[in-house]
Computed example of a mutant assay.
Amino acid sequence: MGQSPKCGRELKNTNQDHDCSEPPKTIDAYIAAQSESVRPLLNQVRDTLRAVLPDAEERISWRMPTYWRKHNIIHFAAFKNHIGLYPGDKAMEHFSDRLTEYKTSKGALQLPYSKPLPLELIAEIAKWCYETGHHH
């Protein structure tokens, strides 16, 4: 066990790296805290997810905007050079043939700011996660 010297938070490991800042409490607050150039892109992702997941609750989970309905359906987050979309490993497998132009990991997709957002694909992935019960 360790403790952050800055904020005093209990940590699993000594000298563990973490974010001392308070996590945002709402998706509005999360987006407002991002750079001006990134906010419109995050709002496009949010609007897309809201449209295909009308019954889902918006919340912050793992410090990221999350869509939830009995479980986390999908998350997204802003990074230095991309938006991360986190639909989980089953979705990444299911859509793998359509994700070849993006950097991916087991349960995540990186959408670089340098390319147009694939909003239709984001919508399809989110809807698939919701309908199948596969989630992050």
Score class of each variant (00 low, 15 high):
103 K>N: 14
98 R>T: 12
25 K>Q: 14
126 A>G: 03
110 Q>S: 13
68 W>M: 01
130 Y>V: 00
80 K>V: 01
36 E>I: 10
6 K>I: 11
78 A>P: 02
125 I>E: 06
48 T>I: 06
79 F>I: 02
106 K>E: 10
16 Q>R: 13
68 W>S: 09
69 R>P: 04
64 M>C: 10
29 A>C: 05
135 H>W: 05
23 P>W: 10
60 I>T: 02
44 Q>K: 15
125 I>K: 04
132 T>S: 10
86 Y>M: 03
96 S>V: 06
99 L>K: 09
100 T>H: 06
29 A>E: 15
14 T>M: 03
28 D>I: 07
64 M>Q: 12
34 Q>P: 01
103 K>V: 08
91 A>S: 15
40 P>I: 01
29 A>F: 00
94 H>L: 02
112 P>I: 05
123 A>G: 07
88 G>E: 13
29 A>H: 04
42 L>T: 13
63 R>I: 00
132 T>K: 03
105 S>A: 14
10 E>P: 00
120 E>H: 00
1 M>H: 14
127 K>I: 00
115 K>T: 15
89 D>A: 15
88 G>C: 09
100 T>S: 10
107 G>W: 10
56 A>W: 13
42 L>F: 10
44 Q>M: 06
52 V>W: 05
5 P>F: 01
107 G>M: 06
23 P>K: 12
55 D>S: 12
66 T>E: 05
46 R>K: 08
31 I>F: 06
59 R>T: 15
45 V>W: 04
60 I>G: 06
136 H>E: 03
94 H>K: 11
75 H>W: 10
94 H>I: 07
58 E>D: 06
82 H>T: 04
36 E>N: 14
43 N>T: 10
86 Y>N: 09
24 P>W: 02
113 Y>E: 04
135 H>M: 02
100 T>E: 11
67 Y>P: 12
62 W>D: 00
16 Q>D: 13
25 K>V: 08
77 A>G: 15
125 I>G: 04
133 G>D: 09
20 C>R: 11
4 S>E: 14
102 Y>T: 03
119 L>M: 07
90 K>M: 10
33 A>I: 02
110 Q>P: 02
2 G>E: 11
135 H>G: 09
29 A>P: 08
41 L>E: 11
4 S>D: 13
31 I>E: 06
6 K>F: 08
72 N>K: 00
56 A>T: 12
44 Q>V: 04
27 I>D: 09
83 I>C: 09
123 A>S: 08
67 Y>T: 07
88 G>L: 07
65 P>F: 11
58 E>I: 01
54 P>R: 09
63 R>P: 04
74 I>V: 14
47 D>H: 14
14 T>G: 02
